[in-house]
């Protein structure tokens, strides 16, 4: 069974068609790149999956369960985490605290337990810090753990955003242009993290990306959108040679 399946997804804001019949299935452990020119509707697809937008038509399935139109927090609780294009972290909190915010769905102490900081709450806080530490180690941010996120460079902040999504211990990870705004070195780090997530954690990913080189090197499969319409799908080599894809990106040949 596919981890995530989109069937004939349609989304329109008034008369503006944003998505028009987007369908794909994300297999377990797969790295699927979602590409397309600016305004193709890539982020909208992610927003439809994680419940920020309610699609006007079509269905979303997560491990066979119907999740179309579910509230975002419910979708996150099921095990679909996402990153944001601009990080969207809490700048005044430390890296560790940002990760702990991401552990929200994993915390179970009762409200009374928290208010009185009963032994259960203490034990849980300790355990969550251990878990957060493992993630910090995974993305190599240990030395910044107590630093306010706002004092970190943009590249590191994006990795923190990445780590925060991992902190949910998701089954499916949605990445929204993780490489945007990163320099070459940071991109290489990012590529390494993505591959490690795939191979070591086995998390299936939908990856919205503009960097064609990265996509061609890393992705298992591409899905190309143009103005909300699916254009092509398949392994990177064939898709990137598809004349329709080249036309969408570079414009048609002049007559």
């Amino acid at each position: 069974m596919a981890e995530l399946e989109l069937r004939e997804l349609h989304l329109a804001f008034g008369g503006l068609k944003v998505l028009d019949g987007v369908s794909f299935a994300l297999e377990s452990g797969e790295l699927l790149a979602l590409i397309g020119p600016n305004g193709a509707g890539k982020t909208s697809v992610l927003n439809c999956i994680c419940g920020i937008y309610r699609p006007t038509g079509g269905e979303v399935f997560f491990r066979g369960a119907h999740i179309t139109g579910a509230r975002p927090h419910a979708v996150a609780r099921l095990g679909i985490a996402r990153t944001f294009q601009h990080g969207e972290l809490l700048p005044h909190l430390s890296v560790l605290d940002n990760l702990l915010v991401g552990r929200h769905t994993r915390l179970t102490t009762s409200f009374i337990g928290q208010a009185l900081f009963l032994p259960a709450a203490r034990a849980e806080e300790r355990a969550q810090r251990e878990a957060a530490e493992r993630i910090l180690e995974f993305v190599e941010l240990e030395r910044y753990r107590h630093q306010p996120v706002g004092t970190l460079g943009f590249g590191r902040q994006k990795i923190v955003g990445f780590a925060r999504a991992l902190a949910l211990e998701p089954k499916v990870l949605l990445l929204d242009e993780p490489s945007a705004g990163l320099n070459r070195e940071e991109r290489e780090d990012l590529a390494r993290h993505i591959l490690r997530i795939k191979h070591e954690l086995g998390i299936a990913m939908v990856w919205v990306e503009h960097d064609m080189q990265m996509v061609a090197d890393l992705a298992d499969r591409l899905y190309v959108l143009n103005y909300g319409v699916p254009l092509a799908a398949g392994v990177p080599d064939s898709v990137l040679k598809d004349p329709r894809v080249i036309e969408a990106y570079l414009g048609g040949a002049r007559a």
Binding site: I52, R71, P72, H73, A76, A81, F84, E88, H104
Partner: peptide, 16 residues
């Protein structure tokens, strides 16, 4: 804290 930051993000992190 997350809600004060940005609600859409807080929601995506599983906060009701």
């Amino acid at each position: 804290h997350a809600i004060r930051g940005k609600e859409a993000v807080a929601e995506a992190l599983g906060i009701n």
